[in-house]
Design a protein around this nucleic acid. Structure first.
Length: 879
RNA sequence: GGGGUUAUAGCUCAGUUGGUUAGAGUGUCUCGUUGACAUCGAGGAGGUCACAGGUUCGAGCCCUGUUAACCCCACCA
């Protein structure tokens, strides 16, 4: 006979079962399996660092979906892996090099990459270990990495194809440059923040005249790169100046004053200095008006040659000193406070510097169109739906994607530049000779690709693309993508575009979006704040099941949630409740006949009730899981297990279980207990895989593991049993209420007298008086005929009158006051309900069942009022 | 500047197509320790569903507006 610890202790079994599952290959997806497939690709965690609470949520959701479908009989694949995370990982390794007093340049590209690979081996496996601790049922033999051989091949294939189609091009453009990461980044990697700055008004002299043009700028240090000043064509103030030449202060360069539609006459002075090399708008104007680009800020954020004596200074230090000089020269007219949005690097938070450089871009328009169509026509559905709009809005306004990064860690761009003829050749195979001139003096492009370029191929590159594999055939498109709303643009949109282009179909059918896990104050968990909670710490202290349950309950899909230890405890208490309910059954299993099956007559009302309730829950849970309402599904199991199975059913089986002399009733109770508990464990397994397996294995069961057991089939409800049982339950609650009013101890037995509005109820209660004995400490239960007993508290509900003889003393005045208040409330309710029913508009227009409900409600209220009045009168007499 | 989310009990949140007396967890108060569980059981208190209109027989839910908080997008120097 199995035994159980008194208290739920996940440490004793979580590791054991995970190893058991993995060892037995239960997670493995077989493409030869003929069954319908269900597949998910993991959002690959970065190889840097470790899992945080967001990962725990993300992977719990995926595991629930996967385990649910697996039990439903689908051929399920959960593809695991991690991402090389170019900038982030390189930054980490560079930081550790710094500590050693060296840097990547000293090491050289090859040695440096060796270091990064070593890092990847260490952290990559740590993450996979952490995922296992959460219970994730990934198909580990398929584990992939965005820079493994297969992915690299896919990346190169995609790059070359897009290039051949003219969708990838190299261009000299102004791009977002991060001076600290020392690389270009894409538009979505720039975070705009409103900052307090200044608007400096400067005056530029008109050549040969004693006039000045006043311009306003937030970045005076870029003036060294000014090659023009622009005004709006219709601006009367400057009409006569357009075409004249201005003298740039300090530098003394001659620059033209020209007109351009871009200028907003209402902002500043209506005249704007134009620095094509250091501002995106000025760059465009420069192209339109053929202006020279003068570079004055270098890649490292320091002033360059063009800045004259300020060369070599940091851009902000230069600004400070320059403003002072301009003031002294009388060029600075005034300084205004000014709030404006400043771009920061999403990785290191440095202020972005727009710089001109040669980069690789992807033309997005033709890729974005089909990606929008796929969502508009419903081939891909966002859950919750509101994210559809966010996704579409971004794609509608999409601009070309800068994909080259001046890093070493990543997929190197498959382009070779010939030093002899200047040709750039893109190729699937490594080149050693220039295809154009035959020169051997060629070199591969130094840059690597944006990490998201390879992540965008994840759903099919992990399945063997570009080869035509069985895996692709079986599992692509994937079924569901689970991810946070923060990477819809970075990742989801790119996967859809690439999937449609190269996978020849949408990459997934549903995009299930979740929110962020915040701290108890609602702040984002972050390293700098030090408010992050390590999911592994929670697993260690409370178990993975507890963490999982806590993460998916008490919130709505797509919304952020807060982390509270109290909520963890609450989830742990639930686990303990399941544990002890199971323990109750296990402790009483001695003498159970495994071959016993009850006859129809063997089932008691409570048996029929709980079986029916189980069916209700099974169907509710299934429906909710199918529509991604995981929290609601979990809540229903919680309610059922705790508030129905434990609070009522288990209590009602005790009489039968402890009565060793009546074999059939005892066997029946054991049978039903086992059946319902086992079924509930199966419903709960996707949410809490470990505890359900641990208990399931101890219970009588068929099969090797609960994770491969069939998902519960929904059977018919027993409406009559549910109705009868609910009348009894309500009556028991009434007794408890009355007893509490008298101040009687809950366990202290006392007489309860019942009378009924019809004979069927009488039969029901006579038959189940035992339920009142057990759960309302009502003993004896007697049945009154005719008039209400004297000196008794009374309550009424559903045609049942409950009388509780008053043996002890109660505070009559206090009780009368309370009853009066209750009567007032009842009167109000009755009036309102009557009003409703007297309203012809209501009775005519509302559905019949609603009207019927209202009628029943009224009669219940009237009945209750009558009983309360009786009680009131009885008490008055006692006064 | 554009878009979105949120506003429900002291706190954190549910509330699925409009339909009984708006729920849960947690906290709080009263009572309860002999065999599943004190990580528990029984009972209670606690809400003008942000505000103002509207649609409807009926609104926490739908529509309009207002307020507040948060988030995303955005090339006005």
């Amino acid at each position: 006979m199995e035994t159980m610890e008194k208290v739920y202790n996940p440490k004793l079994f979580e590791k054991k079962w995970y190893e058991y599952w993995e060892k037995n290959n239960y997670f493995h997806a077989d493409e030869e399996n003929e069954g319908k497939s269900y597949s998910i690709v993991i959002p690959p965690p970065n190889v840097t660092g470790q899992l945080h609470m967001g990962h725990a949520l993300d992977n719990t959701l995926q595991d629930i979906l996967i385990r649910f479908r697996r039990m439903q009989g689908y051929n399920t694949l959960w593809m695991p892996g991690c991402d090389h995370a170019g900038i982030a990982t390189q930054a980490k390794v560079e930081a550790s090099l710094r500590e050693e007093g060296t840097n990547r340049y000293e090491l050289g590209r090859e040695k440096f990459l060796e270091r990064v690979w070593k890092w990847k081996e260490e952290y990559g496996s740590r993450i996979m270990f952490q995922l296992r601790s959460l219970g994730s049922s990934c198909d580990w033999v398929r584990e992939r990495f965005t820079m493994d051989e297969g992915c690299s091949k896919a990346v190169r294939e995609v790059f070359v194809s897009l290039y051949e189609e003219g969708l990838i091009y190299q261009g000299r453009r102004i791009t977002n440059w991060c001076p600290d990461c020392n690389t270009a980044i894409s538009d979505i990697e720039v975070e705009h923040e409103t900052e307090k700055g200044h608007l400096w008004h400067l005056r530029y002299k008109v050549e040969g005249e004693d006039r000045y043009v006043e311009i306003a700028t937030t970045r005076p240090e870029t003036m060294f790169g000014d090659t023009g000043v622009a005004v709006h064509p219709n601006d009367e103030r400057y009409k006569d100046l357009v075409g004249k030449t201005l003298i740039l202060p300090i530098v003394e360069r001659k620059i033209p004053l020209f007109a351009d539609e871009y200028v907003d006459p209402s902002f500043g002075t209506g005249a704007v200095k134009v620095t094509p090399a250091h501002d995106p708008n000025d760059f465009e104007m420069g192209l339109r008006h053929n202006l020279e680009e003068v570079v004055v800020i270098e890649n490292d954020g320091k002033m360059g040659e063009g800045a004259g004596k300020y060369a070599g200074l940091d851009r902000y230090e230069c600004r400070k000193r320059l403003v002072k000089e301009l003031e002294e020269l009388g060029v600075l007219i005034k300084t205004e406070e000014h709030e404006h949005a400043v771009g920061h690097c999403s990785r290191c938070h440095s202020t972005i510097e727009p710089l001109v450089s040669k980069q690789w871009f992807v033309k997005m328009e033709s890729l974005a169109k089909p990606a929008m169509e796929a969502v508009k026509d419903g081939r891909i559905k966002f859950v919750p739906d509101r994210f559809t709009k966010i996704y579409l809005n971004w794609l509608e306004n999409i601009r070309d994607w800068c994909i080259s990064r001046q890093l070493w860690w990543g997929h190197r761009i498959p382009a070779w530049h010939c030093h002899n003829c200047g040709e750039t050749s893109v190729s699937r195979e490594d080149l050693s000779v220039c295809p154009k001139c035959g020169s051997k003096d060629i070199a591969q492009d130094e840059d690597v690709l944006d990490t998201w370029f390879s992540s965008g191929l994840w759903p099919f590159e992990t399945m063997g693309w570009p080869e035509k594999t069985k895996t692709l055939e079986k599992f692509y498109p994937t079924s569901t993508l689970v991810t946070g709303y923060d990477i819809i643009f970075f990742w989801v949109a790119r996967m859809v575009m690439m999937g449609l282009k190269f996978g020849k179909d949408v990459p997934f059918r549903h995009v299930f979006i979740h929110g962020l896990v915040r701290d108890a104050q609602g702040r984002k968990m972050s390293k700098s704040l030090g408010n992050g909670i390590d999911p592994l710490e929670v697993v260690d202290k409370y178990g993975a099941d507890t963490l999982r349950f806590m993460l998916i309950t008490g919130n709505t899909p797509g919304n952020d949630m807060r982390f509270y230890w109290e909520r963890v405890e609450s989830a742990r208490n639930f686990a303990n409740k399941i544990w002890n309910a199971s323990r109750y059954l296990l402790m009483n299993l001695a003498g159970r006949d495994e071959n016993f099956t009850p006859n129809k007559e063997d089932y008691t009302l409570s048996d029929k009730w709980i079986l029916s309730r189980f069916n209700a829950v099974a169907s509710g849970v299934t429906e909710n899981l199918e529509k991604f309402e995981l929290g609601e599904a979990a809540r229903q199991i919680y309610e059922f297990l705790w508030s129905e199975f434990c609070d009522w059913y288990i209590e009602l089986t005790k009489a039968r279980l402890y009565d060793k002399d009546n074999e059939r009733p005892r066997q029946t109770a054991l049978f039903v207990l086992g059946k319902v508990l086992e079924g509930t464990l199966r419903l709960l397994h996707p949410f809490m895989p470990f505890i359900t397996e641990e208990i399931w294995q101890k219970l009588p069961h068929k099969g090797e593991t609960i994770m491969l057991a069939n998902w519960p089939q929904v059977e018919d409800r027993d409406e009559a049993a549910e109705k009868d049982m609910s009348v009894i339950m309500e009556t028991i609650k009434t007794v408890r209420n009355l007893r509490a009013e008298v101040g009687a101890a809950p366990g202290h037995k006392s007489e309860v007298i019942l009378s009924f509005s019809d004979d069927n109820l009488k039969v029901l209660f006579k038959e189940h008086a035992g339920y009142l004995n057990a759960l309302a400490a009502a003993e004896p239960v007697t049945f009154a005929e005719g008039d209400a007993p004297e000196n008794a508290l009374s309550g009424a509900l559903n045609g049942v009158q409950v009388y509780l003889p008053l043996k002890g003393l109660i505070d009559v005045e206090k009780e009368l006051a309370r009853l009066q208040k209750e009567l007032d409330g009842l009167e109000k309710d009755i009036k309102r309900t009557e009003g409703k029913l007297n309203n012809e508009n209501f009775t005519k227009k509302a559905p019949a069942n609603v009207v019927e409900n209202e009628r029943e409600k009224l009669s219940a209220l009237v009945e209750k009022e009558k009983a309360t009045k009786e009680r009131f009168a009885a008490l008055e007499k006692m006064k």
